[in-house]
Design a protein around this nucleic acid. Structure first.
Lengths: 97, 97
DNA sequence: CGGCATCCGTTCTGATACTG
DNA sequence: CAGTATCAGAACGGATGCCG
């Protein structure tokens, strides 16, 4: 199950540069990534959880509240994502020739 | 068309650490990646070529000889792949606890 | 709010056979 | 050697409806 949303989700869970990694609710992620369907979002989140990249926290209350945040292993992906974004910039520069 | 083979192909085209990026024939890539089908290999290579990551060189001769190598943009992915491999090591360490 | 179950068309992929 | 063509099964992904 190879999803192209994982990087987008992780990127959102990194938060803005300089800020702390946010803890996000399901609906927040939905709003942050408007193009992903609910089904895909939950599926990819479950997958990331199984892989130990994302931690899922259930707060037993009504209405339900579930929060997602990166694990230590997830945080460790930051250099990788940065390298990838750097590459995207190189690519953009080249294509603007 | 999201393929899980692209990284494997690129990794092979990087060559061994310390060596120069190799120029590989189709059959060499086939042998280097035994688990990929011929169809997928050619498909992913074509895709990487369209994306400007891999250069395909046809030598008009009999028997045919086609060589693949990374473009400049493809080479620029090296830091990204390295970061990813570093992360894989972190992951391996954690799971061996 | 944060899901899960189901249907259903689209896409992907492997296997196999064939070609210049 | 380096592909192309075709077919069938598997996987993907969106839409919809229901639930605690």
């Amino acid at each position: 199950m190879e999803g192209r949303w994982k990087l987008v989700i992780i990127h959102n869970l990194f938060g803005r540069d300089g800020g702390k990694p946010p803890v996000m609710r399901f609906s927040e992620l939905e709003r942050a990534i408007p193009t992903v369907s609910q089904k895909m979002l939950i599926q990819q989140l479950r997958c990331l959880e199984r892989d130990g990249i994302v931690q899922r926290t259930i707060h037993p209350q009504v209405p339900p509240k579930v929060e997602y945040q990166l694990t230590c292993l997830g945080e460790a992906l930051r250099p990788t994502l940065r390298a990838l974004l750097d590459w995207a910039n190189i690519r953009k520069q080249q294509s603007s020739d």
